[in-house]
Amino acid sequence: MTSALDVAVARHIGDFDLDVAFTVDKGISVLFGPSGAGKTLTLSLIAGLLRPDVGTIAINGAIVTDCARRLYVSTQRRRVGMVFQDGLLLPHRSVLDNVALAVRQVGGRRARRDVARTWLERVGAEELAQRRPVSLSGGQRQRVALARGLAGEPALVLLDEPLSALDTKVRRELRTLIREVIISSGVPAVLVTHDAEEADELGDVVIDYDDGRVTGQHAVARPSYPEPPLENPAGTEPS
């Protein structure tokens, strides 16, 4: 079986040196370490927003970056979903249209909106569909951002400190939700955090980062979760 993500890259930026290699399977993999350790940079390299100096990256066995062969698949064609710390929802679109923008598996405005609505339901934000992003609370914003990150049926979803901007109570609530939604969607995820509790609670695997290097990798013992459904997770069929 091919692994969900294979990374072996090095990149030099200013005084900072990143040189990491790891392999993860389905489920949630956490990149854990202090800020400035190179976790977010790694996500940018996986997403193809930046190019490594040397190395290769493969998503689901498909090579997307190979410096030796000068192969760089564009971000658009990597089929990654991204969730950012501050959500980055577009202020000029409604919540529903923000999510619909990410839907790529079906054509037509109505069909895309239908898919988007299903995803808003799955993150418990269906009543926010017509709201503007500025009127959302931090927790609501991140729910919508999660829906948007998954709505395009990505091969891999990348979450960059998705809970760090929230207060403790909301954070706890959203941890459970993120884990549930991602695991049931069957999409492998890489999540960046500097919070140890969050790493343990969310991750199936935790990869320790320090100063641009991987210093350890361990699996988190947790009860087995149900197998993801085999059919289209976006719910284009009536559920």
Binding site: L49, M82, F84, L88, R104
Partner: peptide
């Protein structure tokens, strides 16, 4: 803010 555009690229636009 270029991160909006990065997010959109990741969405496949």
């Amino acid at each position: 803010d270029p991160r909006f555009e990065q997010a959109a690229r990741a969405m496949g636009l």
